[in-house]
Amino acid sequence: MKPAPLTCHSPTSLDEALRLLHDIGSEAKVIAGGQSLVPVLNMRLATPGHLVDITGLPGLDEIRVGAEAVEVGARVTHRQLERSPAAYAALPLLRQTLVNVAHPAIRNRGTTVGSIAHADPNGEMPMILALTGGTVTAVSVRGERTLAAADLFVGPLETVLEPDEILVCARFGRFPEGTRTGFTELARRSGDYALAGAALAVQVIAGQMQQARMGFVSVTEVPTVLDLTDLVAGRAADQSAAVAEAVVERVHAHIDPESDIHATAEYRRHLTGVLARRLLTDLTTGEPARTSEEALRGAS
């Protein structure tokens, strides 16, 4: 299928892009990599009259690693972030998750910030932004504002962003010392949307678990964070099996999966519990190993 007629604008400065968005109004849509947006347009689920392409803007293409966060510009592709040694060293969860985002051909074009603006509950990176306590910066002709992930997402494919705002960067928060992270998901085929997915960040100091938080893909309406600290704090990491049942129970109570032709809500709920237990076991017993997917498809 082909998109409905539209005008594609290619501004060469951020000011020009913001002015275009302001002048055109709600008929305009920002496009970066377009890997989520173009399927929607091809299927005519959306028919904006104008696209404002931000891939030609100067800047917005940097990955900056700071003491508190990894900042990612709006033009950085999933693939560039996945392959950045500095980003991996600062926040391994980024690569651990990104290798699960669709296929390399999609990651070569799709942007991480774009997927956050798209706010698909099946998307991995909105959840990772929330799990890391991240923030985003949005700009418009009215100025700039910074939003916490918790304030950004309001529903499936819905954010608080105004039609004339551009998300210029996302900041993924770095975890405290001793934090181990992992991501796992189950999809019917490699690269498909996950039936269910989960990420865990658990801090282990001197063999004892401290803070722990978990995020989910495809089983919650918006990316929300489940705090598990009270269940695990002070317990020996190699005894995590003792709290696994309580963690799974907490997960089941937190998520709200829906049924579709691929899986029932009950199956997704069961699956998410299995993934949560697996993550907890993998991250707390022995040395945290890279997942096979990460080893296979990450940097080589």
């Binding site: 594609c8 496009i31 377009g34 890997q35 173009v38 091809n42 392409d53 999609i106």
Partner: peptide, 10 residues
């Protein structure tokens, strides 16, 4: 890349 997911002008 997928050429069906890219507008030529971009």
């Amino acid at each position: 890349v997928r050429s069906c997911l890219i507008f030529t002008a971009t």
